[in-house]
Design a binder for these strands. Structure first.
Lengths: 150, 150
DNA sequence: TTGAGATAGATGCAAACGCATGGATATACG
DNA sequence: CGTATATCCATGCGTTTGCATCTATCTCAA
């Protein structure tokens, strides 16, 4: 008590930032990322959760990359045969991105190994109830107010 | 209920990752970063919390940058007059980094504006009790087990 | 229908990154 | 004391990033 709401918000954000940095560093140190960098995995993982092909613009919103950076990363992932890019029949400007079978396979393989690391790093520090609470709070935090009306 | 602990851990981590990405993107879109990029601010902010000069190695641990990337960022920040680099009298290999007065000034200025953004983005979504809980859970998460014995 | 403005994605280019490595100093051990 | 090994930071180099900009397409109003 005594801390203003603003101070509380900043302290919580800094704690989240620190937790993110610490865990990312520890995860980056594992042997999981030999065939796929974390950023590349992030793109494939996001795609893997989309039942249908997605617009590149949509992907940019969910991945921490600028639009040109994503565009070129897509080029590279296409070159490696992991994703496909097709014109959007509903919008001549847009492209639709989707995982190929090899792309889905490598995402599953890397994702499986990564999930083990996550569990090892997180399980020792938070119990199930805390994990659920953290998940709920982060979901609230991630609520994009401009996205609700869609 | 029904989700295994591993599943819980992965879901919580994904939620944290998403919250981080969403908020970072929204913060990056503000006018705060004209004179200092977020990564540069991160370095200056970390330095600002150190009462004494810090070793570069120590800074690398707290900032999400590789050692060479930090080394060069330090070069640039020195060139702009924001930080100072001196040899460590206790260890001929090491360097000690510290904020200069202009560096402290710009960190305070940018930090002040940034804090307003943080408060605006976070306050609407979590109440004070939730903020405190989130901070506590993130602190637990960030506990580096290899750092306790120092 | 057409012309102005908005939006999607690609590309040129300089800046910044990570990996591998090098030179210098500290530490451990015979 | 001397040599092997580890640690710290800087630098070479190829890759990736972000900013600005370009082209193409869509939207909407006159």
């Amino acid at each position: 008590m005594g801390r203003s709401t603003s101070r509380l918000a900043n302290d919580a954000w800094e704690a989240l930032l620190t937790a993110h940095a610490v865990l990312i560093k520890q995860m980056a140190a594992t042997e999981v990322w030999n065939e796929l960098s974390m950023r590349e995995y992030d793109v494939l993982y996001t795609l893997s959760k989309c039942p249908e092909p997605v617009r590149a613009r949509e992907l940019t919103r969910h991945v921490l990359l600028s639009q040109p950076a994503l565009s070129r990363m897509v080029d590279r992932l296409i070159g490696r045969g992991f994703i496909a890019r097709d014109p959007d029949p509903a919008d001549g400007r847009g492209v639709l991105l989707s995982l190929t079978e090899p792309g889905r396979a490598i995402q599953r393989r890397v994702g499986g190994r990564h999930a083990v690391d996550i569990a090892c790093l997180v399980r020792d520090r938070l119990d199930p109830a805390e994990l659920r609470t953290l998940e709920e709070l982060c979901h609230k935090l991630a609520t994009d107010d401009n996205e609700e009306t869609s």
